[in-house]
Design a protein around this nucleic acid. Structure first.
Lengths: 346, 346
DNA sequence: TAATTAGTTACAATCGATTGCAATTTGTGT
DNA sequence: ACACAAATTGCAATCGATTGTAACTAATTA
């Protein structure tokens, strides 16, 4: 453990027979230093290979140019994209990202929140985990005066900044599209209903049916079909119904939709002729499958940018005690072969 | 900007008529506090909603429970997986990750390094960018006494800890496999040769040819075919040769391989019968394409874990001035339909 | 030339937690 | 009851940068 002593502003000051305060001012481009000494200081700083100690600086300034991000999983395309977008903007502003993953665990999410509070991060952006229980840890963030931005998966029990996808609208569009393609019995694969996003997607499904005067058939709605495997399993069940569906909206994810496609292929059902399939998320693979899968793009990278921009705006807004705002991003339905029964109708 | 004053150890001390030092000791489970006052302190800490200020703590302790990570792109499966693995281990140890992306830009990489040095992170893990120029910024890391771990894309001009994939071996296996499948003219799509990984992959390709007494045909080696588009373009060129290849090893990525597959499909070439295709990285989509693509899995998540473990080991090792070690991970060839011409031969 | 101002630089307190050492309290043995 | 050791607690310096204020120097004006 080498105790490499780093050069501080005091070292620079001593070498130049100056006071540390002047060094500090010179390095921070503060006006109150003569140009001559400024140059001297800058030169010796470089000579001694000086690097600011941001721990000290942050402590003194009571603030830390860092944004904390908590996501269920870092290596999930959607979240990775959001983080990339976030990083892009925060980097420009000289801010850093501290990343945590909750691994869909509530306890771990709490721990992550606490660590970030300890670090006095300037802002926390969070997408809550699947087994979210209550919002006390999020309240705690606010109690410690840290701006909080929820994104994608949010809890409505708390009044915070939010960046959302308009899941309901997107789902409605997707299901409407399928109806227009002539599908009559559209099944829904739904996700855990304690997450707002899945409730909204279901709502969109229901509204689309209603709008077109389609009946809601409970036997066509399958709970908890989140993964490819669960999607496949649900599909087996659906297809063995006396009156099986002629389309499946895998509102949980494209992986689920992939499960549907695989089962359909195994059963020898033609897609999209005999079974329509629509996923959610626009995972890269959806345009590669055969047939390619209709899905919904969530603009994840720009969602990340939006979060960051919201924060940088928010800082200014704080003065005039404005209310937390919600930004809604409209996802885009991407129509591909898996639902395109009637090629003229697009 | 609410100036929410946070409770400090002084607040707790004052409330209990104690000295801050006792509070500090109590909270850090230091022995020198009576159990009675410990309980008191813990109780009031909870009551006042105390959260440690790690900026102060870190400053005093001169160290910061944080590991900095620099990758070219966060939202690239390979790197996202590595980060996920890293986070998994560091989280267990109570460490945090600060993530930066160089965006394949050398200048930006330097800036990221400097920020991390300023933060006094406990360690920096880096995978260098594509237009890497020289290692002075990495040297600077060492000069500031920060342990440095390079992974995947590394420079050999510097003696640091390294976590690598055995690219050469993996490539050799892949090409050997293709040769065994009876392919006679195997093309190579290579990546920027200033990155070690691409040099190694090419080396593996060459060694495999040599081992089987195959000639090296320069016209079958295409530079800089990194993306899907570039892969496709190179393939067009290759296929219009007087003597076109009967297999392509897209050593750069699976995306490149996908480009090859698309061109082959457009040209009506049967894969694997008329053209064998092998990619690199085991992207999720490779098992979904038709035919599925043979590729190489890099164990990215466990690579991240390895990096973290190396760091936690290293800390102990530092005492007895041991030399930086290199850990090599053997990637796995995943044989799928796109090269499986002879089904019995597997 | 003296007085006033502007421009520099020095001093010292501060951010909050940690830690060596001194001072105090408590406990033990005789 | 006293001496001594052990356990607690308090004091004060420290980590490195920042910043308000004071002190000093140089420049400007009457």
């Amino acid at each position: 453990m080498k105790k490499q002593k780093r050069t501080t502003i005091y070292d620079i000051a001593k070498k130049l027979n100056l006071n540390a305060s002047s060094v500090s001012r010179a390095l921070s481009n503060n006006s109150n230093v003569s140009e001559a000494t400024r140059q001297l200081i800058l030169a010796t700083a470089k000579e001694l290979n000086y690097q600011q100690n941001s721990m000290a600086s942050n402590l003194r300034k009571g603030q830390n140019q860092t944004i904390g991000v908590i996501v269920p999983r870092i290596n999930q395309n959607f979240f990775a994209d959001i983080i990339a977008g976030l990083e892009e903007v925060t980097y420009q502003k000289g801010y850093n990202l501290v990343i945590c993953q909750s691994n869909e665990s509530y306890l771990r999410e709490i721990k992550c929140v606490n660590t970030l509070i300890n670090q006095h991060v300037s802002c926390i952006a969070i997408s809550i985990c699947a087994d979210f229980e209550d919002d006390s840890h999020l309240r705690n963030i606010k109690e410690h005066g840290i701006p909080l931005i929820q994104f994608d998966r949010v809890t409505d029990t708390l009044d915070t900044f939010k960046v959302l996808n308009d899941n309901e609208h997107a789902s409605m569009e997707a299901v409407s599209h399928m109806i227009e393609q002539g599908y009559k019995r559209i099944a829904l694969l739904e996700g855990p209903q304690n997450l707002n996003i899945f409730r909204q997607r279901k709502e969109g499904y229901l509204k689309a049916l209603k709008k077109h005067n389609y009946p809601v058939l409970p036997e066509l709605i399958k709970e908890n079909a989140w993964t490819k495997e669960l999607g496949a399993e649900s599909t087996w069940q659906l297809l063995s119904l006396p009156e099986p569906p002629d389309a499946v909206f895998a509102s949980t994810s494209d992986f689920s939709a992939l499960g549907v496609l695989e089962v359909a292929t195994k059963k020898g059902l033609k897609v999209p002729e005999e079974l329509g399939i629509c996923g959610y998320s626009n995972e890269p693979f959806t345009e590669i499958t055969s047939p390619s899968i209709t899905t919904i793009d969530q603009y994840s990278v720009s969602m990340g940018k939006t979060i960051a921009n919201l924060f940088f705006q928010e800082i200014d807004f704080m003065d005039n005690g404005s209310h937390p705002q919600t930004v809604s991003i409209k996802p885009q339905l991407i129509i591909r072969s898996s639902t395109l029964r009637n090629k003229n109708q697009i």
